[in-house]
């Protein structure tokens, strides 16, 4: 029973057992730690890829039902293997590189986006002690890594030799600058409350239901949620892609699995944002008993993702200048005000 509640113990057990066996072979220990890293990385990559494929299916089914449609239901049970079929199709397709493209940058761009999306997971605790590397500056690491993805988008837009892609990439850069600031400021007020930059400790500080930061910092929650939606380029802020204006924005020229990688990264980013919202504001793995902590985490994660999908299939899109107005003139002052009020409250206490 204990093992179900603390998956970390299983990993610890397996790896210590592995270390013992390794000692018997007499090979150097540094090799073992390298192998351990590769194994952990593969597990992480596999789990995230599976989760992303599930998310793609979920989004397609949900969007269909929002629109009185059925959605994919032919491949596998209720279309659950549709994402697999799509990826197989994308793998089989030709990877076209446009003429006069900046080839090196063009090929590198999807990898940058992909790597940035997946590296953020390293510091993400999903249950007590269940984290690859418990950075003491975890939240800072995640915020900085996930904003690296924009560089990949800018690279894609620049190198495609397409005016629509270029506009998309430029918009993406402008959007990041407008949104990164309120996003970080909103997180800052939570950090002030929790008194730590370590995600595990921030979650641990929300043990009781009414200690959840969504109740103690509702404004920060709203600002973070809006800014994060903009950061992952989802409607109503999908301005860099804006398919009705820029056909597909920065990935117009990408085909085959390179497009697929952009697509996977988009959903991986969505999951990161949902996980941060869960950790910072919804009490992380703290639940109401009767379920293991990781289940509570996943339930809250799923709910946040549902809300993001719900947003996407309801709202129209902002215009570039309106988005910047919202970022600079409304969200940034509000976030600063929120920090100010939080600080005064902490000072009085």
């Amino acid at each position: 029973m204990k093992y179900i509640y603390d998956i970390r113990l299983i990993f610890d057990f397996v790896f210590s057992l592995g270390a013992r066996l390794w000692e018997l072979t007499g090979l150097p220990l540094w090799l073992y730690s390298q192998i351990k890293i590769v194994v952990i990385g593969s597990i992480l990559l596999g789990v995230i890829s599976l989760a992303v494929m599930f998310l793609i299916w979920l989004e397609r089914r949900l969007s269909a039902h929002f629109q009185s449609r059925i959605g994919p239901n032919r491949v596998g049970w209720q279309g659950s293997l549709q994402a697999v079929a799509d990826i197989v199709k994308l793998l089989a397709k030709e990877n076209i590189t446009p003429a006069n493209a900046d080839v090196v940058v063009y090929l590198l761009a999807p990898m940058v986006v992909f790597a940035a999306a997946f590296m953020a997971y390293i510091a993400l605790p999903v249950a007590p002690r269940l984290v690859v590397n418990n950075f003491s500056l975890g939240i800072l690491y995640i915020l900085s890594i996930s904003s690296l993805g924009v560089i990949g988008i800018l690279m894609a837009g620049w190198s495609s030799n397409n005016k629509y892609s270029l506009i998309g990439g430029m918009r993406s850069a402008a959007q990041m600058i407008s949104y990164e600031i309120p996003l970080v400021l909103a997180v800052l007020s939570v950090i002030m409350m929790a008194g730590s930059l370590n995600l595990s400790e921030i979650v641990a500080s929300q043990k009781n239901f009414f200690d959840w930061h969504i109740f103690r910092q509702p404004l920060a929650f709203l600002i973070y949620f809006v800014a994060a939606t903009a950061e992952i380029n989802r409607l109503p802020f999908d301005i860099p892609e804006a398919e009705s204006e820029l056909t597909a924005g920065f990935h117009t020229e990408y085909s085959g699995i390179r497009f697929g990688i952009f697509f996977l990264a988009e959903f991986a980013n969505m999951m990161i944002v949902a996980s941060i919202v869960t950790s910072l504001f919804l009490g992380g793995w703290h639940g109401f008993g009767f379920l293991p902590p990781i289940a509570w985490f996943l339930i809250k994660d799923a709910f946040t993702i549902f809300t993001l999908i719900w947003f996407r299939w309801t709202f129209p899109r902002f215009r570039m200048d309106q988005l910047m107005n919202l970022g600079w003139k409304i969200l940034t002052p509000l976030a600063l005000l929120n920090i100010f009020v939080t600080g005064i409250r902490m000072f009085i206490k």
Partner: peptide, 21 residues
């Protein structure tokens, strides 16, 4: 106006689908 719009889509989420297979 934003949650009001979301309620409309939520209504259709649980409504009847009209797709013909």
């Amino acid at each position: 106006s934003l949650p009001a719009g979301m309620l409309v889509t939520l209504k259709y989420l649980f409504g009847r689908t009209v797709t013909m297979q």
